[in-house]
């Protein structure tokens, strides 16, 4: 291997370059560094700016976001019945609680609960009989049973998740099984006594 030229890859003119810059070596080094750093930094900023649209394109698109809220007509749901609807591609349970179910839920001391919330925390003032929750088990995301007629409502008369045996009570609070928290209550409001906007 020829090793003599290794240190001076730019053989031609290398000597001249040294001569020309010998007088301002300190100055020259500093300016060179500045340009290299500036170019590198600028290119880095550019690369980051280009990366963003490529990452952001995986976020929900405009048409998906446009479906962020739904309106549900609850006029046909009798006490003791519930319906399943879809909001943001997820099932939502809308349940018209009977007076008995509400009493059962209120009767449970909060200290007994894994995720202490009262029925009043989970419903709206003036609409205490309307229990609106996501139909997604907080354990691993299965859909609990109990919203449709004749389904297993679990040991506590609310919902029962068949995947890993989580039991929810009439306020959709976790009472038994592996799920860590109560079924999630989404943001919603009553636009009229029979029309609910979720989201």
């Amino acid at each position: 291997m020829v090793s003599t030229t290794e240190a001076h890859p730019g053989a031609i003119g290398a000597g001249r370059m040294g001569a020309a810059e010998a007088g301002h070596e300190v100055d020259g080094v500093r300016r060179r560094d500045f340009i290299y750093v500036a170019t590198g930094a600028f290119a880095g900023v550019g690369a980051a700016a280009v990366a963003w649209p490529f990452i952001n394109q995986m976020n929900p698109s405009a048409d998906v976001l446009a479906l962020a809220s739904v309106e549900v007509d609850v006029s046909a749901i009798q006490p003791g019945q519930s319906i399943k609807t879809i909001w943001q591609s997820k099932p939502v349970f809308v349940r018209n609680l009977t007076a008995k179910e509400q009493q059962e839920a209120d009767a449970v001391p909060l200290s007994e609960l894994r995720d202490p919330e009262s029925l009043a925390d989970r419903t709206l003032e003036g609409h205490r009989n309307w229990l609106i929750t996501l139909g997604v088990c907080t354990h691993l995301g299965c859909i609990p049973l109990g919203a449709a007629e004749g389904e297993n409502k679990g040991d506590y008369g609310g919902y029962f998740c068949p995947c890993h045996g989580s039991h929810y009570d009439t306020a959709a609070r976790i009472r038994k099984g592996p799920a860590p928290t109560n079924l999630v209550v989404p943001n919603y409001m009553f636009k009229s006594p029979t029309l609910v906007e979720i989201g």
């Binding site: 649209p53 490529f54 952001n56 394109q57 698109s61 405009a62 048409d63 998906v64």
Partner: peptide, 13 residues
Amino acid sequence: EHIMRNVNSGWLI
């Protein structure tokens, strides 16, 4: 057209 109108930066890509 969904890419052009709805996807974030879809038109650019």
